[in-house]
Design a protein around this nucleic acid. Structure first.
Lengths: 130, 130
DNA sequence: GAGCCTGTACGAATCGAATCGAACTTAACA
DNA sequence: TGTTAAGTTCGATTCGATTCGTACAGGCTC
């Protein structure tokens, strides 16, 4: 593989030990471009994935961390869609559910895609943290 | 700009002279990632764009060339969606309407995206030329 | 002209996605 | 125990995309 640096490489962190198992997700080899593009084709989803990508921290983030100001049931819907498409991985920490982008898997299957997400910017006047 | 070769570069052709004007389309600077991803997020659309990308010829192709076996009104719908998203350019040649991928514009705004489309393959068992 | 071939326009049916409220679960904590 | 907090599940609504039939328009050729 090439070692071209990407915009989000500086945020690639070592996996901490003793993580809870991920929630059910598709295997790398089962990822489909049409499914991933569909999951990403919306400003809110792009916002979520881009923020996850660029503001990574150890143990990742809960839904609430995004401050999206939407009902919890809506967030469940979007995060599940992203997980089932293979874009993010979710783990259960007690009552919290934390998410991370599946960087390695997406880079392997769709090289360059995450760079597009990282470079994305909302349309002028569009807000998400209402 | 870098001069990294892409899978479809060999198909990049000089523009013939005296082309009809393109049908209305968004300017390069108005292309939105979410709109483009949405337009591409379906097997049929990916099939169309990939075929257009890899089997380019001078003066490009009509809808019928794809042999998609769908009603004409459906094809009009999909090609218009791709054009309005900025993925393809369409020109009117007499009664025919020919399409080409906006390679330069898409490469400029979303570098790497067309490589993903070019590398795409339909899911096993999926057919389009029914 | 009659047929045929491009393709559009319009409208209808249908399907799925997005959105959200309400009720529930599980855990932490005072 | 009672409260708060994170998140799920269910069901309803709404909205848009897809799909397609039908009718129509312009140009070709016999």
């Amino acid at each position: 593989m090439s070692s071209m640096p990407t915009a989000y490489d500086i945020r690639r962190l070592p996996e901490p030990d003793g993580l809870p198992d991920p929630l059910p997700e598709p295997d790398v080899e089962d990822l489909r471009l049409e499914t991933v593009l569909s999951a990403l084709s919306g400003p809110l989803r792009l916002y979520i994935v881009r923020k996850l990508l660029l503001e990574r921290e150890e143990f990742d983030h809960t839904c609430g961390w995004f401050g999206l100001g939407r009902p919890k049931s809506s967030l469940t819907h979007h995060f599940r869609a992203l997980r089932e498409a293979g874009v993010i991985r979710q783990r259960q920490y007690g009552m919290e559910r934390r998410s991370e982008v599946r960087i390695d898997d997406l880079d392997a299957r769709f090289p360059g895609l995450l760079d597009l997400v990282a470079a994305w910017a909302p349309a002028p006047g569009e807000t998400f943290t209402r």
